[in-house]
């Protein structure tokens, strides 16, 4: 087996949001740290899922990587196909197009991510026209090809988005992301706005496309059943930090962070016979403008000690390629997702 080839290194990414105070006129605006020293490596061809509760910074992370938003600091090193390493966040000017088109994004809401004022054909062809010099016939050929690949009826391409259902719209969005032949696609909750049956279709489509074109995915989601199904590795985020990062089986089988355990216990079980031990977290999600001391999770953690209140845990390797940010990762015996199929196998 060849050594896994990295495609993207995210190094120490931070993102602050300025919060304007409505009462004070001259006071310095407070800032909220939404992303805190995020670092991870992405291997070509894998699917890395990012999970976490609402407001933990998943979407911000995704947008900062594709430069839909500007990160406050940090680097995103992009490994091009011919082996160059480029800081993706510092790309500027005309030359940057070549690389920027190789990282694309699929949005959560297929209703707001498609311009209501353009026909589907124009929506899909837009990135193509922006990046390549092609004749009309070539554009038409590429668009029809990609439309077929994503399961869109080619004869409907001259229609406007309002003529399509949510699932079809998401297919349009996927077609738009694919048309520039990207190597990496960030899927920001790409299926959470869809029906369960449609979700399965779209997930299968994404998987098929991944096999065909060797695409790497960053899959942002809060739906753990889907994440377990599709990802190679999973990163768990809590309040702007990655608290656990591991291969999918390892994480779901044996989580090492109490927050991950709590998330897992919330996954719905299809079997009603199975006894459920749901961990209900006490209290509320801490205010990111004023995060708790030490481990950010300690106010809600059942296993907390004095050390947790005082010391910030580092993200460290506790098993083979299993990273976690908990002082007691080795001692705690945490429960993963009970997986019938895995047990039988």
């Amino acid at each position: 087996m060849t050594k896994p080839k990295p495609i993207l290194d995210v190094i120490d990414m931070n993102k602050d949001f300025q919060v304007k105070s409505k009462t004070a006129l001259f006071r310095k605006p407070a800032s909220v740290q939404v992303l805190n020293q995020i670092s991870f490596e992405l291997i070509e061809g894998e699917t890395l899922s990012i999970v976490g509760e609402s407001g933990c910074g998943k979407t911000t992370l995704g947008r900062c990587i594709v430069r839909g938003m500007d990160a406050s600091s940090g680097q995103v090193i992009y490994h091009t196909e011919d082996g160059q390493q480029i800081d993706f966040l510092k790309l500027k000017g005309k030359g940057s197009k070549t690389y920027r088109r190789e990282i694309q994004m699929i949005f959560q809401d297929p209703y707001s991510s498609l311009s209501p004022r353009m026909s589907v054909f124009d929506i899909i062809s837009e990135p193509l026209i922006a990046n390549f010099k092609l004749s009309k016939a070539e554009v038409e050929e590429k668009v029809t090809l990609i439309a077929e690949k994503t399961g869109l009826n080619v004869s409907y391409l001259r229609r406007y988005p309002h003529a399509f259902s949510g699932g079809q719209r998401q297919r349009i969005a996927i077609a738009r992301a694919l048309i520039t032949q990207p190597r990496l696609i960030v899927c920001d909750e790409a299926v959470s706005a869809l029906d369960v049956s449609i979700q399965a279709q779209i997930i299968n489509l994404l998987k098929d496309l991944q096999e065909q074109f060797r695409i790497t995915y960053i899959f942002i989601s809060h739906d753990l059943s889907i994440v377990q199904n599709i990802s190679d590795r999973v990163a768990v985020m809590h309040l702007g930090r990655i608290v656990e990062l591991a291969a999918s089986e390892s994480l779901f089988g044996q989580p090492r962070h109490p927050y991950t355990e709590a998330l897992m216990s919330a996954v719905p079980q299809p079997d009603p016979e199975l006894k459920k031990n749901r961990i209900i977290l006490e209290g509320e999600v801490p205010n990111p403008a004023n995060p708790p001391s030490g481990c950010h999770f300690h106010p809600r953690c059942a296993y907390r000690t004095e050390k947790c209140v005082k010391e910030v845990p580092e993200l460290r390797e506790v098993g083979y390629n299993h990273f976690t940010a908990c002082h007691y990762a080795e001692e705690l015996k945490l429960k993963g997702v009970h997986n019938e199929l895995a047990d039988e196998a």
Partner: peptide, 14 residues
């Protein structure tokens, strides 16, 4: 700040 405008930005539209 609409998604479709950000999408166009990501797609490399000037």
């Amino acid at each position: 700040n609409e998604d479709y405008v950000i999408a166009a930005k990501i797609a490399g539209v000037g």
